[in-house]
Design a protein around this nucleic acid. Sequence first.
DNA 1: TAGATTGTTAATCGATTAACAATC
DNA 2: TAGATTGTTAATCGATTAACAATC
Lengths: 212, 212
Amino acid sequence: MTTTKRTSLISKATIDRLPLYFRTLRLVQDEGIDVISSDELGRRLGITPEQIRKDLASFGQFGKKGVGYYVNELKHNVGGILGLDNHWNIAVIGIGHLGAALANYQNFVSLGFNLVALFDQDPKVIGTVQNHVKVEDVRELAQIVRERHVDIGIIAVPAAFAQEVADQLVTAGVKGIWNFAPIKMQVPDSMHIVNEDLSIGLSRLSYYITRR
Amino acid sequence: MTTTKRTSLISKATIDRLPLYFRTLRLVQDEGIDVISSDELGRRLGITPEQIRKDLASFGQFGKKGVGYYVNELKHNVGGILGLDNHWNIAVIGIGHLGAALANYQNFVSLGFNLVALFDQDPKVIGTVQNHVKVEDVRELAQIVRERHVDIGIIAVPAAFAQEVADQLVTAGVKGIWNFAPIKMQVPDSMHIVNEDLSIGLSRLSYYITRR
DNA sequence: TAGATTGTTAATCGATTAACAATC
DNA sequence: TAGATTGTTAATCGATTAACAATC
């Protein structure tokens, strides 16, 4: 039995480690390993075993004292916590270089997401196909988002158009937005939005190599 | 005069906010604004003014009490702290969808990075051009990295080849690695590496929309 | 049983928020 | 001067690490 504790008590850092656990458990399972200790999982990920046990314990008791964690069971539990078993429908808006890369990113498929729609504004791009999905005119966004039950909208348009697209996604009723445009988006408090700012990582690297 | 404090005292979270300050200062400057308060900067970014003042104060005294911060001066200071004025040379390894997107990402140019080399393994890709740079055979990586003084290697190859590429980059003498492959990389302690794991953000979004 | 390993509590460490003196 | 705003110290909050009892 799984005891689920109050969401608010769980650290943001913990949630960001769960996908790493999930991925490693899958790799471990492919190697034919049935049981794994927090020690071994930690060794593979460069995370302390205490941290891993604490993270998992915030969601329930998944291990067996003196034994470890059953890989398959833990993998399903972690996947469930992350909501991956909902197999969310995703759509990418803005099929430039980045949007096309996201549309073709196979790791999303392996996490259980379904790519159901692509949108662009450029007549030369509309009608082309990426990863077996046809690019639609962004003017039909609202209608298609509803028809295909899009849960998550991925914004890969230039910064100048991002807010407008976000507004349309909110109106069309998506559950969450994954934003790659480097701007502070205005969305209702109830809308979940995750910003993916690629220049932060590169700037951080610049910072570190500058002062080593 | 700028007082620079010990690096170790500065929080990782602070460093990740600096690129946001830098970008906003540039936007503000484009609007013709000469002076900005922590309050206004915070309003634009959704960050508290106290946080911004604290972040900046860890690197020196850049503001004027009762006045605010001179936009141009602060922008240059923040850029300098991030090391953007070094105009680091970057190379992308793996010109698939993601690698091509990174090679064409204009925000990196605007941060002062220079794209100097692209590498792939596929004969059909070698010789093609992305963003005015020709794709070279990855077997020539070591030589070209030295010739063109590559500072940062961006790994966009499939997970199975990522460690091998990292090893070659380390041997060739890059200063830092920006890794998009979803694996735990083994590099010497002296090597700076930033991992960009796109599935974390999407998984986090899945987590939040699952339990709203 | 003895050894291994979890889950949890307590201690420490780090980051944010609040408050306010300094000063433009 | 009076009002505005920084820079810094103190207080709070949150996350990680350490320690260990429970138990397989």
